[in-house]
Amino acid sequence: MTRIAGQEQLPWLHLDSGGLLFNKQSRLSAGQEESGKNAAAGIAEAMEAMRCRALGIAAHDLAGGVAFLKQLQQERQLAWLSMNLVEAASRQPVFPSWLMTETAGLPVAVLGLTGGPETLAAAPDKADYVVLPWQDVLPEILRQARGKAAVVILLSSYPAAVNKEIAAAHPGLHIVLTSGPGAAASHPALSGGALFAQTGAQGKTLGLLRITWTEAGRWAAPQAEDENLCRFNARLIPLESSLPEDAAVREIISRAAQRRTAGKNRRGD
């Protein structure tokens, strides 16, 4: 979970790069399906309440099936993004490839990229969908976005090495928010001209990224003195149980837990 702000007095741009649903599960057993989907629906409702602007799609988000994720999108005001998760028959994207938004008066393009073909391995409806290679889709989407946005952000669930390859090949990317497998929360760093950030798994860390954006559209290197270049500062905030709770989100979580318990009771677990 990452929030980006250009100026403190303006609203945050709240983004999530994927892997949000089903915790560590990439496959739901028959006995877990109802309770797992109830929990996932509760997470989606909470993200809607927190006004998450866009979410990437990773393997864990598909444990309940692509059709289930489509259902969540229809039920909630959430923008799940993936330019390369497509229908097998038509090769048309299942979800929007990207969206335009704004923060601090800056037009921002947010793009979604789902990590390789193995992403679908455990999805119960995997035969109906395909994950295309990023090389087949990203150049055209970037071309469209660059003509409209001052800042281009990529939400990617590819592994770290692939994300760095992507940034090196496409200097038009300004920020890459990742949810690659096995990576822990890490302080943002520059690579290939893009700023990389990841907050780790299971929503246990909030990443807060504050940006000073300039017409140069390029990041200043660490300790650089050129004031015309773009700069950032970041905080990684552990979401500990001692932090104050949001009452509305707490109520959503409670309802999700009740639905999950009711499902287990019906099955006699």
Rank of each mutant, 00 (worst) to 15 (best):
A201Q: 12
A79W: 04
A216M: 08
A160Y: 05
D125W: 03
M1F: 10
G192D: 12
D16R: 03
L239A: 04
A40S: 12
E33K: 15
W213Y: 02
P93C: 08
A256L: 11
N38R: 14
L190P: 04
P11A: 11
G6P: 01
G31Q: 12
T261A: 14
P11F: 01
A40K: 10
E118H: 09
G19W: 09
A123N: 10
V131H: 02
G217I: 10
L81E: 00
V86P: 00
T101H: 07
L20Q: 07
T261F: 06
G172H: 06
D269R: 13
A63N: 03
A247N: 06
Y158D: 12
G112R: 01
P159Q: 09
V152N: 06
D16I: 11
S157F: 05
L208S: 04
Q258M: 08
T119V: 06
Y129I: 06
W12S: 11
A79G: 01
H170Y: 15
I237Q: 13
A149L: 13
Q77W: 00
P133G: 08
L239G: 00
M100Y: 06
G6R: 10
R27G: 10
L229S: 03
P244A: 08
V162T: 15
A63V: 00
P188L: 08
V151T: 03
W134K: 02
L132A: 12
F22C: 06
V108D: 04
V108S: 01
L206F: 00
T101E: 08
A40N: 02
V249R: 12
R267V: 07
A150R: 15
G180N: 07
A262M: 07
G56Q: 09
G56R: 09
H14Q: 11
